[in-house]
Design a protein around this nucleic acid. Structure first.
Length: 482
RNA sequence: CGGGAAGUAGCUCAGCUUGGUAGAGCGUUCGUUUCGGGUGCGAAAGGCCGCAGGUUCAAAUCCUGUCUUCCCGACCA
């Protein structure tokens, strides 16, 4: 066991909350290469839960999984002007392989639009071939200056959807549909409330026409982009000549979308739900939903208690991911703390006293509340209800936090006062990039999105730009971001 | 990539100023005692002092370079 000493103290709420929890809860560890991380089994199990929930939704919306290669010819990246401009600085490039210099350098994919378009242009001939709805689970590499576990690593795992459509309308519907899937994933599975909206030009994906996003507010008051969905227009289709013959025999470029979420979501979970005891996982994505801690003194008791634990597991295993911590070398008290750090939503303490009176003791991780003498009959129902309650409570707490930290500001003075304490600022913006830039220079805050819906009620239709004070119709969300 | 801090036992750290046989607590192993919120006692094992050079009779300690982490800026999911 690592970090036993620091585990004894409550975890600090400092800047290093993220790294601390990631390491202590054994989600990840550092690799010898800068900015890279090892995702440890428990962290990977969380990723698998996220994956299986999302993969199901992706398939339900008609997409198929496929796999495109890691290496992309350097020339591909250069075909789309904005795309190359955006990604060139952060690309890792292989120039030497097989014992010699390569004729054409290979880019380690920072995203797969180019290689996928190359393939699409081969596969798409007719309107009858459309739409093409593809998703891939993959790793990608982006050479970042400053890295943080889960939130920004050099290599990370993600899912990238790529679709091609006959019309602009269809592609736009697709873009928003998948953003909706991300919203569902975040709010209903990860228990993280988000603000969904449109990115401004400066924050838009390199090569996209429109970028939609979901943004979450982290415990430290910073905003985290948790997922993006792009309407790519015909930009890549033109660059790669991805054309189809329509019903009138006319050749047209396809309209495309791409969308992705990554292992960053694990960072979001940490930075949204952790408390002084460690991680708190929403039941829907917790690799272990119920941990059973047996309590016993001598051997006879041990056998009796462990047998009862197995029985419990048997009756509950169809409804829950349940595990008994039957390790002999750790005391019950030690186990309590251990599983709290790891964020297991429900703990069942089971000892001789409980068994003799046919009850269990249940401790919920979200509130730390101890529920004594819960009858063993109807336990399944009780736990199902509790599980739902914990899921909802985590969302409610995060949502309250978001609302409490969202402010409407009317002028630059108010803006400057509020922005340093973190949270979201709602204000009018005249839609000029220079106004956005000016505020970024002064305050480090950026427009996270033009929200579809404001998180707090706001009736005004019109106001004055937070920066230049001219009439403005657009209300935007500002925040400091990761 | 700039500014600051750090890297010594599995973990947290002391030792470095002023060079001279590698330290503590926790954890681990064995024994014993315990087990309903991180048990007590006894013994033992465990270290290319991040890496590479240099200075020196002698380097964890001084010098140079380099790698990694953390914090702060410029860039991003």
């Amino acid at each position: 066991m690592s970090g036993a000493e620091t585990q004894e103290k409550d975890l600090d709420q400092g800047e290093s909350l993220l790294a601390k929890i990631a390491l202590e809860a054994e989600l990840a560890d550092y690799s010898p290469v800068k900015g890279c991380m090892v995702i440890r089994p428990y962290g990977y199990a969380i990723w698998e839960q996220i994956q299986s929930s999302l993969d199901k939704m992706i398939k339900e919306t008609g997409h198929q999984n496929a796999y495109f290669p890691l290496f992309i010819p350097e020339s591909f990246l250069q075909k789309e002007a904005k795309h190359v401009e955006g990604f060139a600085p952060e690309c890792a490039v292989v120039s030497y392989a097989g014992g010699k210099e390569l004729e054409e350098k290979l880019v380690v994919r920072p995203t797969s639009e180019t290689i996928i378009n190359y393939m699409f242009s081969k596969w798409i001939q007719s309107y009858r071939d459309l739409p093409v709805l593809i998703n891939q689970w993959a790793n990608i590499v982006r050479w970042e200056m400053r890295t943080r576990l889960f939130l920004r690593t050099t290599e990370f795992l993600w899912q990238e959807g790529h679709t091609a459509h006959a019309t602009r309308e269809e592609a736009e519907v697709e873009t928003k549909k998948m953003l909706g899937v991300y919203k569902t994933l975040s709010e209903e599975y990860l228990a993280i409330p988000i603000i969904d909206g449109i990115k401004t030009e400066t924050q838009r994906f390199a090569g996209a026409v429109t970028t939609y996003c979901i943004e979450g507010l982290m415990k430290d008051g910073k905003s985290l982009q948790m997922g993006t969905s792009h309407y790519l227009g015909q930009n890549f289709a033109r660059a790669f000549d991805t054309k189809f013959q329509d019903q009138n025999g006319q050749l047209q470029h396809v309209h495309q979308t791409s969308w992705g979420v990554s292992t960053r979501l694990i960072g979001a979970i940490i930075m949204t739900h952790s408390d002084e005891k460690g991680l708190r996982l929403p039941p829907k994505i917790a690799p272990i939903q119920i941990i059973v801690v047996p309590i016993y003194k001598e051997q006879a008791e041990k056998e009796m208690v462990l047998k009862k634990c197995k029985e419990l597991e048997e009756t509950l295993k169809n409804d829950f991911r349940i595990k008994t911590d039957d390790r002999d070398q750790y005391s019950p008290g030690w186990k309590f703390n251990h599983w709290e750090i790891k964020g297991v939503p429900i703990r069942i303490n089971l000892g001789p006293k409980d068994i003799s009176s046919n009850v269990v003791e249940i401790v919920r991780r979200d509130t730390k509340e101890k529920l004594k003498n819960v009858p063993q009959q109807d336990l399944r129902q009780y736990l199902l209800k509790l599980s739902t309650e914990i899921q909802e409570n985590l969302f409610r707490q995060a949502n309250d936090f978001l609302i409490k930290n969202t402010f409407t500001v009317k002028n630059e003075k108010e803006f400057a006062e509020k922005i340093n304490s973190g949270g979201y600022l709602i204000c009018f913006w005249c839609e000029k990039t220079q106004c956005e830039e000016k505020l970024k220079q002064k305050t480090k805050a950026t427009i996270r999105c033009i929200p579809f819906k404001l998180p707090v009620d706001q009736n005004q239709e019109e106001g004055y730009c937070i920066s230049c004070n001219q009439k403005a119709k657009q209300q935007v969300i500002f925040a400091k971001a990761y």
